[in-house]
Amino acid sequence: MKHAFAWLTALAFTLPHISTAQGETMTQDERAVLAVIETMTHSFQAGDIATVMNSYEPQATVVFEPAAPVSDPDMIAQMFTGMAALQPEFSYPAGHEVIVNGDFAIHIAPWDMIARTPEGAPVTQSGLSVAVLHRQPGGDWKMVIDNPHSARLLASHP
């Protein structure tokens, strides 16, 4: 038992800082990661695909459809352009979780989206976004992997 306590104490001092949710005290890196997500979301809603693409590393992978990752930057831009035409509006009702470890970070957040078909009919969708970000040589953060459909794994779990 004495060894377990010593091990847990040592582990507590070596773990990366974890922010359990938006609104709690966040480090500068955690705020910077969250800013990337917020900028990307607002730019996507505004149809500013150039700024959306600037949120990603050139070799990034985005999972637009479950189990169908896309890594070609031209295809990613084309997919965002097509989806922006639906005038999506996103909200993050449970907030954001950001975990930073050195030059890597993960962002996790449930999301809700309302959009409009070309005919004007409303479309709603919800999901769980999991994004991996990497600190760039200049200090900025960019997404490397973006999977907004992670919730499908939970739905298939008994």
Rank of each mutant, 00 (worst) to 15 (best):
Q22M: 12
Q22A: 14
G23A: 05
M26R: 14
M26W: 09
T27I: 02
Q28T: 15
D29E: 11
D29H: 09
D29Y: 01
D29T: 06
E30F: 00
A32G: 10
A32N: 12
V33Q: 01
V33W: 01
L34W: 03
L34K: 06
A35K: 13
V36G: 00
V36C: 10
I37V: 07
I37Q: 07
E38R: 15
T39M: 05
M40S: 07
H42I: 02
S43N: 09
S43M: 05
F44T: 04
A46P: 10
A46K: 14
G47N: 12
G47Q: 07
G47I: 10
G47S: 07
D48Y: 05
D48R: 10
A50C: 01
T51W: 05
T51C: 09
V52I: 05
V52K: 00
V52H: 01
M53K: 02
N54P: 04
E57I: 07
E57G: 14
P58D: 06
Q59I: 09
A60G: 03
T61E: 05
T61R: 11
V62L: 08
V62A: 09
V63G: 02
V63T: 10
V63D: 04
V63Q: 07
F64V: 05
F64H: 03
E65W: 14
A68L: 15
P69V: 00
S71G: 14
S71H: 04
D72M: 08
P73T: 03
P73I: 00
D74Q: 11
M75R: 11
I76V: 11
Q78T: 14
Q78W: 11
F80P: 02
F80T: 01
T81L: 01
T81M: 00
M83C: 02
M83S: 07
M83L: 11
A85N: 09
L86T: 10
Q87N: 14
Q87E: 13
E89T: 13
E89Q: 14
F90I: 03
S91W: 02
Y92P: 08
Y92S: 12
P93S: 06
P93T: 06
H96P: 11
E97V: 13
E97C: 14
D103R: 15
D103P: 12
F104I: 06
A105L: 08
H107W: 04
H107M: 08
I108M: 11
P110K: 11
P110C: 05
W111R: 09
W111C: 07
W111N: 08
D112K: 13
D112E: 15
M113V: 08
I114E: 14
I114R: 15
A115D: 14
P118I: 00
P118K: 04
